[in-house]
């Protein structure tokens, strides 16, 4: 998995959404004609107001529902463990220790703990929680729980990780720390990420591609590239480049909401 990321525009396609639409109850269009090619190594943010279909898009990619029309295709087909998911809540099993929570994706594939122990510990080490493997979720802080959730998503070394506003419920300080750690993780394991957020600043800091979406009907209106090099540090947050990207994204978001920029 440790391979350098190709520059934007030279990456191999991992997943293709073509003309994907999702309609609920026959008339509520949650997502209209979405076309998106996710490339290996992309960090894509889906940015938009609530009701813009970003979570619907994520659920469609996760296979939790089928598109009404259109296709979602994985290059080379999708196999077990190709996908990791992080929700807005840590979504841990409170009765299971940290290590058993992280073991879950393997356990559901019939692998015993001893078989995958090294992977579990490696994932916990990546998120800095190797000392807490025997703890129960209630003993951890909100940020630590989220780290466990990320470790669980990473443990199968998935080709794609979906994150649905994972840090929205955390305080600013924890969120910034996790933003940085997430980027460091991504450098370390080189995975592809689709990240749903409604924060302009978060999307610019994290991603190299921002897909701006609008509501009613949910649709993609603009795609932006953030070509700032990784690794990005806290200095990036205060750079003129960052501010310019934020303004671009913010303008696009205003457009998405039908307001003058």
């Amino acid at each position: 998995m440790l391979k350098p990321r190709a520059p934007l525009g030279q990456r191999n396609a991992l997943l293709k959404m073509s003309h994907v639409e999702k309609t609920f109850r026959g008339d509520v269009v949650a997502l209209k004609d979405m076309n998106l090619t996710v490339n290996e190594g992309d960090f894509i943010s889906l940015l938009g107001p609530s009701g813009c279909g970003k979570s619907t898009a994520l659920r469609l990619i996760a296979g939790l529902m089928k598109p009404t029309t259109g296709r979602i295709e994985w290059t080379g087909g999708q196999s077990a463990g190709d996908l990791g998911v992080v929700f807005q809540e840590p979504t841990l099993m409170p009765w299971a220790r940290v290590q058993d929570n992280v073991w879950l994706p393997f356990r559901l594939r019939g692998k015993s703990y001893s078989e995958v122990k090294d992977d579990v510990l490696e994932a916990l080490k990546l998120v800095g929680l190797e000392k807490f493997q025997r703890a129960f979720p209630r003993e951890l802080s909100g940020g630590m729980k989220m780290r466990v959730s990320i470790a669980r998503a990473l443990v199968t070394k998935p080709r794609l990780i979906l994150m649905d506003e994972p840090f929205a419920a955390l305080d600013e300080i924890t969120r910034h720390k996790l933003n940085q750690d997430l980027l460091a993780l991504r450098e370390a394991i080189g995975c592809t990420v689709i990240f749903v957020t409604h924060s302009v600043f978060e999307s610019v800091f994290l991603s190299d591609r921002i897909v701006v979406m609008a509501a009613r009907p949910g649709r993609v209106i603009r795609e932006l590239e953030v070509d700032a090099p990784y690794p990005r540090t806290e200095e990036f947050r205060t750079s003129a480049e960052y501010a310019a990207h934020c303004r671009n994204a913010s303008d696009a978001l205003h457009e998405a909401m039908g307001e003058p920029a």
């Binding site: 077990a80 559901l108 594939r109």
Partner: peptide, 29 residues
């Protein structure tokens, strides 16, 4: 059971029995 956990189990391809055993039973305890 936590709806997100149910989704997670589905994404990881859990069988009915696995969901009952590892998710619903402990939730119901």
């Amino acid at each position: 059971a936590d709806h997100n956990l149910e989704d997670l189990y589905s994404i990881y391809g859990a069988s009915r029995w696995q969901k009952l055993r590892y998710l619903y039973a402990p939730t119901a305890l």
